[in-house]
Amino acid sequence: MKKTAIFLLLFLIPFLDPNSYHIEILATAALYALLALGLNIIVGFAGLLHLGYAAFFAIGAYTYALLNLRLGCPFWLGLPLGMGVAGVGGVLLGLPAVRVRGDYLAIVTLGFGEIVRIVVTNLEPWTGGPNGLLGIAHPVLGGFNFGVDSRPYYWLLLVLVGGIAWVCARLRRSRIGLAWAALREDELAARTLGINGTRLKLLALGLGGGIAGLAGAVFAAKQGTITPDSFDFILSVMILAMVILGGLGSVRGVILGAVVLSVLPELLQGFSTYRMLLFGIGMIGLMRLRPQGLLGISQIRRELQRAAS
């Protein structure tokens, strides 16, 4: 009930606030929320520290862009295809990576992320190299072209965030979610209880990758232009920061983290040149005050109380 009300309110914002700049910020925040939800499956649920998540975002974006530019594929077909290709990418890059543990996994994924970006930059005949791809078609829905207006993208992203958040919340409470939690806590004990660690980790990587691909396809359609610069290591790190800041594993938390970290720099706009400086200080300060994230342990406790009552 409460969730529906919040969702409706968010849906109505473009009518209440006609400022297109604000809507653009919100659309960007929603895009980040989608990415943070996807990465949360990998890092928060399954406990795999991934530092190359931007690669799946890139795979989704380039999949739709290439399908559209080469074959004239419409957005609504490109969206699931971008998701699928990025999901398969997540599993394939994960196959070797899940063999290593902990920090080493972080480094392998970082390496894969960089490799994907450099390959995209250097495969010029296909990807347009550093100049990227231009003229990617905007979505068309029932004769209505989304165009360059931020509002339809905001609505689309809002629906996607709502849907994916619902999926994540259900997943977390499911048998699979519990198995992920067990693997995260103590992999050896989990394996001796019959949990196939490799398969479940690959599932998390596939789902997380797929969600990034979904976000990538929307991003490509919204911008109309994509370049490899949009998918660098800094993006991977930012998304991870959103997940950790919001509270690992908490669905509401990571959405909140994404909104805070994407809106905060805009709010600091008044400080013009100092804003990223202040942003850096803010990240340090927030972590010192709440090392467990905004909705970390406290939320878990609340849920336990609710389950108990």
């Binding site: 520290l49 920061a241 400086l277 850096g280």
Partner: peptide, 24 residues
């Protein structure tokens, strides 16, 4: 200050430090 805290939170402060130094 975070040495006893969750391991990943240090990652975030490190990123904060990077942002700060780059922009400074």
């Amino acid at each position: 200050p975070l040495r006893q805290g969750p391991k990943l939170s240090v990652l975030i402060t490190a990123i904060g430090v990077s942002f700060f130094l780059q922009n400074a």
